[in-house]
Design a protein around this nucleic acid. Structure first.
Length: 575
RNA sequence: GGCGGGGUAGCUCAGUUGGUGAGAGCGCAGGAUUCAUAACCCUGAGGUCGGCGGUUCAAAUCUGCCCCCCGCUACCA
């Protein structure tokens, strides 16, 4: 049986992630991981914070902390937010941890041995007052083309012209505003990606099953021709540039570029997972080295569309360039953006809803369901509070929650708090089983294909099927003439709750566990993926006691919605 | 600017390789029901499939041009 390695794009350390970040990589990866575990697959789901780079240094400075302190604090915040959302990482690591340092040094050294790394000198803008080199986007000035006064160092937002920072008139640092800038020469290591062009093209062509969005982005980069890129930066916070275990001459004040070390943290975090093993039995290399047992691993990556090029071209250059037998990705799931009322979620402008704020409004499962059922798969998708409230009320409260409530309460009132005996399943149940059989297959296939919207349309239809069944079976009518027949219907419906819990657990794990708890079932054991609807409806035998659960989902009231709109500054509703 | 993705009912979105009268959920209207969170279930109204040409017996689907939204454009990550 193949093992499945799952990674979601590493969230940047710079603050709590918003709902767009969540649904772009971590949440779909979690749903997929949970689904595969339920099917009995051996899954390793790895994620980590991406901590290096200029923004982290600047954010730390703004907070009056060292980068180390800032990142440690933010790491804890993000880790807690992930746990609160039920993200079932097998390990949530840090790109600043030791394994990533070791691995990054290893990759750099081997790439250099293979002739793929070269020292080159560059001219860059240095800010004397900030005491640092400024990345292009941290320099602004007047555009030489159109006179726009806030042109960034790489491009003018007004006329669209691509710029070199040295072309800017009256350039200033966006960090301090200082105009005390000069151009200095600085050495950097370059990864000679141009030499990898054919190798990467061949590797990409070996994966014809990638989604369209993923393939077209990869092909676009290859078509333009891979360019050599600098993999070091003039920063303090990052992985030091070494040679033979010592600071590399001329690179004492430099670190590796965050985009070079961040993907390596996929491996690093796996090693962290192994190091954290209680019994020392975890072998991280068996997941990553083809010569140490990884032949049977299927590796799936989840990411937002902005990350695709780095995962289909840049990181493969690093990993394939070593000519060592590292595992490369088999399948990529790339998602588009979730928008805030059609505009951008923005961390810097504090626009939209962030993970910690979301949980102050409603429980994690409501967000998980809404985000996944409306995931931005084929195009950017719009998040609105109105839509969210409507989905919570209809799908979760009315369709699923009410189903559980209506049948458990009816049973308790007429038969007591145990699965009733008597009667037998008949034609109505046969039709239900046939319907469920088809839908469970469609649902399973869609999850397997990571087509989430499609999957959750099916899951919702499976919930609806329960309500339809009750409507036809009408035990509240039957109970008056034929109590045995009513008992059979109730038994069937109670079993549906358990079936629904198992099927729904990948997306709404907290609620699924509550549903199992109604019947005193152990979640882990009961959540095995149902292969057969008929068998699944025999799970609860007559006499099995239960405790009617409190309402699973409370509805969002209109005044709540208004309060939220106010709180988050929601634009005028689309509808 | 270049490249890529997308523009389908009031809203959010599905629509394999072009082929029976274009779909779902929400919202709306009507009906049925009363076990249930004024919930559930059934039925219905609603679309010149971004615009204008072209190919074809046949186009939401292929092609040309135009308009709009989004991403990338290698030093934001």
């Amino acid at each position: 049986m193949p093992r499945i390695l799952i990674t979601s794009a590493l969230p940047y350390i710079n603050g709590v992630k918003h709902l767009g970040n969540l649904v772009g990589s971590m949440l779909p990866a979690d749903v997929y991981a949970r689904f595969q575990r339920a099917r009995g697959q051996e899954v390793l789901y790895i994620c980590a914070t991406d901590e290096h780079g200029t923004p982290a240094e600047l954010a730390a400075r703004a907070a009056g902390q060292t980068a180390e302190e800032y990142c440690t604090e933010q790491y804890e915040v993000q880790k807690r937010a992930g746990e609160a959302f039920g993200l079932s990482f097998d390990h949530f690591g840090r790109s600043s941890n030791l394994p990533n340092h070791r691995l990054t040094q290893h990759f750099a050294a081997v790439l250099e041995e293979k002739g793929l790394i070269q020292e080159r000198a560059d001219k860059q803008v240095y800010s004397i007052d900030d005491q640092r080199f400024l990345p292009d986007r941290y320099v602004e000035g007047t555009c030489p083309e159109c006179g726009h006064e806030k042109a960034r160092g790489d491009q003018c937002d007004n006329c669209g012209r691509l710029l070199d920072p040295v072309e800017l008139i009256n350039p200033y640092s966006t960090i301090s505003g200082s105009r005390n800038l000069e151009t200095r020469e600085t050495k950097h290591l370059y990864l000679l990606q141009s030499k990898m062009q054919d190798r990467i093209a061949e590797w990409v062509d070996d994966h014809p099953d990638w989604p369209l969005l993923t393939k077209s982005i990869a092909h676009k980069w290859l078509k333009e021709g891979l360019r050599d890129r600098a993999i070091t930066r003039d920063l303090y916070w990052g992985i030091k540039v070494e040679k033979d275990g010592r600071p590399r001459s001329g690179f004492e004040n430099k670190v590796f570029y965050v985009w070079f070390d961040a993907p390596i943290e996929y491996l690093g975090a796996t090693e962290e997972w192994a190091l954290a093993s209680p019994d020392g039995n975890r072998d991280w290399r068996s997941w990553w080295r083809l010569d140490e047992g990884a032949e049977d691993v299927r590796y799936v990556q989840f990411m937002g569309k902005d990350n695709v090029a780095f995962h289909t071209v840049s990181f493969p250059c690093t990993i394939l360039g070593t000519e060592e037998p590292w595992k490369t990705v088999d399948t990529l799931k790339s998602l588009n953006w979730l928008t805030w009322y059609g505009g951008k979620f923005s961390t810097s402008e504090n626009r939209g809803i962030f993970m910690d704020q979301a949980l102050e409004l409603l429980p994690a499962d409501t967000w998980r369901w809404h985000l996944m059922a409306n995931a931005p798969e084929s195009d950017d998708a719009s998040f609105t509070l109105e839509h969210f409230a409507s989905v919570v009320n209809k799908d979760l409260a009315d369709v699923l929650g009410n189903f559980v409530n209506r049948i458990t309460r009816f049973c308790a009132a007429r038969f007591g708090e145990a699965v009733p005996e008597g009667g037998a399943f008949g034609e109505v149940e046969d039709r239900l089983i046939a319907d469920l059989g088809q839908r469970i297959k469609a649902y399973t296939d869609a999850l397997e294909a990571m087509e989430f919207r499609k999957a959750f349309v099916e899951l919702r239809a499976i919930w609806v099927a329960g309500n339809e069944y009750l409507q036809v079976a009408a035990p509240w009518t039957k109970v008056k003439q034929d109590k045995d027949a009513a008992a059979a219907s109730v038994r069937c419906a109670l079993n549906l709750i358990v079936l629904y819990a198992a099927l729904s657990r990948p997306v709404i794990p907290f609620t699924a566990d509550k549903m199992f708890a109604v019947f005193g079932l152990d979640s882990e054991a009961a959540s095995r993926w149902p292969e057969n609807a008929e068998q699944a409806l025999q799970t609860l035998q007559p006499g099995h006691e239960f405790t009617p659960a409190p309402v699973l989902f409370t509805k969002v009231e209109d005044d709540q919605l208004l309060e939220w709109r106010e709180k988050f500054g929601a634009p005028r509703a689309d509808k």
